[in-house]
């Protein structure tokens, strides 16, 4: 379903940056290609899913070792793209809603979920439209690799926060605005390794951990200290550490 007459792609709004929409539209069909333009996300996916599963299970006192540890929990994935997180979380038992402003991307997501026999509630729209429509808040809200692409991050986080229910939590992951991140995540990934199309990330749109923490507080959530994620390019393995200088994750609870 869509939330308004004007397609979100053309809305001048809090979430949507028209230039970003254009580049993601070009990549829409490539979401599930392991060697395609979203390869870095595929490489990161196991590690970040492990983190999401563990964090949600700990928060809600769930046993991680059962087949469907997230059964009965409602999860919202903001900027869900092709469904790289929605599908695994559905397999783990969660009732997942994925929202994305790009129709073409959602078409890829829906087609793929159908192929896999998974039932996922995909919404074409923006988070501010969901808030306005009075959507019931969720147990967990995922805000993964999205904030660095939106037009107005503080307002965006506020809207995301409004979708976190009582005793719920939000998980945000993004790239820090540091010289090291500029070298590795932009120069390295886009220009040297060519893992990402040039222009995928813009330095000035990157967000520092203390900025995200501040915005989370403003939206009524309690942020925990950020956790660093770093990639070993030789083994393609991600690991978690205190080093938040490039990629990091912030968990916030209500």
């Amino acid at each position: 379903m869509a939330y308004s007459e004007i397609a979100p792609e053309h809305l001048k709004s809090i979430s949507v940056d028209p230039a970003e929409m254009e580049s993601f539209t070009r990549m829409a069909e490539d979401w599930w290609n392991p060697d395609g333009m979203f390869k870095p996300l595929h490489i990161m996916n196991g590690a970040r899913l492990g983190f999401i599963k563990e964090t949600i299970c700990t928060h809600f006192g769930r046993d991680e070792n059962v087949e469907q540890p997230l059964k009965g929990l409602r999860i919202l994935d903001i900027g869900c793209g092709g469904g790289l997180l929605c599908e695994p979380l559905t397999r783990l038992g969660a009732a997942v809603t994925g929202v994305d402003a790009l129709e073409k991307t959602l078409k890829t997501a829906k087609t793929h979920a159908k192929q896999m026999g998974l039932n996922i509630d995909y919404r074409h729209g923006t988070i501010e439209q969901m808030v306005k429509a009075g959507e019931t808040p969720f147990d967990a809200v995922l805000n993964m690799e999205v904030i660095e692409h939106v037009a107005n991050p503080p307002e965006f986080i506020k809207d995301c926060g409004a979708m976190v229910g009582e005793n719920g939590l939000m998980i945000c992951s993004t790239i820090n605005r540091t010289m090291k991140a500029f070298l590795f995540a932009i120069v390295g990934a886009e220009y040297v390794l060519r893992w990402l199309p040039r222009g995928t990330h813009q330095y000035e749109k990157l967000v520092k951990p203390r900025e995200i923490a501040m915005w989370l507080l403003d939206s009524g959530l309690s942020p925990e200290p950020s956790i660093g994620m770093s990639l070993n390019p030789l083994t393609s393995q991600w690991k978690f550490s205190n080093d938040v200088s490039i990629n990091y994750i912030t968990v916030a609870t209500r």
């Binding site: 392991p34 390869k39 196991g46 492990g50 599963k53």
Partner: peptide, 21 residues
């Protein structure tokens, strides 16, 4: 087994890590 435990499609993109390893 790690892919399965993360809810991933075990025949999907995560399989490449086996080759690298």
């Amino acid at each position: 087994s790690e892919a399965k435990s993360a809810g991933l499609d075990i025949g999907g993109a995560s399989l490449e890590a086996y080759g690298v390893w």
